[in-house]
Computed example of a mutant assay.
Amino acid sequence: QTAGDVQGYRDLIAAVPEGEDVEMTVRRDGEEKDLQVPTELVDGSPRMGVILAEGHEFPLDIDIAVGDVGGPSAGLIFSLSVYDELTEGALTGGHAIAGTGTIAEDGTVGSIGGIRQKMVGAEESDAEFFLAPSANCEEVVGYEPDGLEVVAVGTFEEALEATTTIAETGTVEGLPTCEDVTP
């Protein structure tokens, strides 16, 4: 049997009778290995000698130098920068993509102040594309600087999809604009 998350595996182990082995397949150094892992009753539930916990230990430090840029409205771009550092290749595909937005733990992109000024600053810095929080779209429509294509994003996943689409195609075709999300 398999499960999709840590809790799912905990539930599978809890269903094993006390003292019975759990058959597991693990991957070590790229090779799969079959194991028989004994269980033992701990605090009234079957447990095995493997700790299942959520968490990550990354093998590298991330250092992003952004000069005097800071504050919560840089959260989305900081998050994309970290993602870019952790993955192969240039996330933007060489395109100048700017943006703004707060970022919540669940990946929600929040509104910011001064969106119109930030779009002008992006255009003056030769950005081709701009990721704008969907929550700011009413302030964006009709104020997009010439030559700056604006994409509306509401989550980190949407921003990542927009960035990879721009990287692959060089266009915003098929991506939501503020006109699309503003009533």
Rank of each mutant, 00 (worst) to 15 (best):
Q1S: 14
T2Q: 13
T2V: 13
A3I: 01
A3C: 06
G4Q: 04
G4H: 01
V6W: 03
Q7N: 11
Q7G: 03
G8F: 02
R10M: 13
L12D: 09
L12M: 14
I13Q: 00
A15N: 01
V16N: 05
V16Q: 05
P17A: 01
E18A: 11
E18L: 03
E20S: 03
V22D: 02
M24V: 14
T25P: 02
T25F: 07
V26P: 09
R27D: 08
D29I: 03
D29Y: 12
D29K: 13
G30S: 07
G30P: 08
E31V: 10
E32R: 06
D34T: 14
D34R: 15
L35Q: 02
P38D: 07
P38E: 08
V42R: 05
G44A: 10
S45F: 08
P46V: 04
V50P: 04
E54T: 06
E54G: 14
G55W: 13
G55H: 12
H56F: 15
P59A: 14
L60V: 14
D63M: 05
I64L: 15
A65T: 11
V66C: 06
V66H: 12
D68V: 01
D68P: 05
G70L: 03
G70W: 01
G71K: 04
P72R: 07
S73P: 01
G75C: 07
L76M: 06
I77C: 03
S79F: 01
E85H: 05
L86M: 14
T87D: 02
E88L: 00
A90K: 07
L91Y: 03
G93A: 04
G93M: 03
H95C: 10
A96C: 09
I97A: 10
I97E: 13
G99R: 06
T100R: 07
G101P: 07
I103F: 10
A104S: 15
E105M: 12
G110E: 11
S111L: 02
S111T: 01
I112E: 01
G113K: 09
R116Y: 06
R116H: 08
R116D: 10
R116I: 05
Q117D: 15
M119F: 12
M119E: 12
V120L: 15
G121C: 03
G121S: 13
A122T: 05
E123H: 03
E123N: 07
E123C: 00
E124M: 13
E124K: 14
D126F: 12
E128W: 10
F130Y: 15
F130D: 10
L131D: 01
L131H: 02
P133F: 05
S134T: 15
N136H: 10
N136P: 08
N136L: 12
E138I: 02
E138S: 14
V140G: 04
V140Y: 00
V141M: 08
G142Y: 11
E144G: 10
E144D: 11
E144R: 11
D146Y: 05
G147W: 11
G147R: 08
L148E: 11
E149Y: 09
V150K: 02
G154W: 12
T155N: 08
F156Y: 15
E157S: 13
E158I: 04
E158S: 06
E168M: 10
E168W: 10
E168N: 15
V172L: 07
T182E: 06
P183R: 12
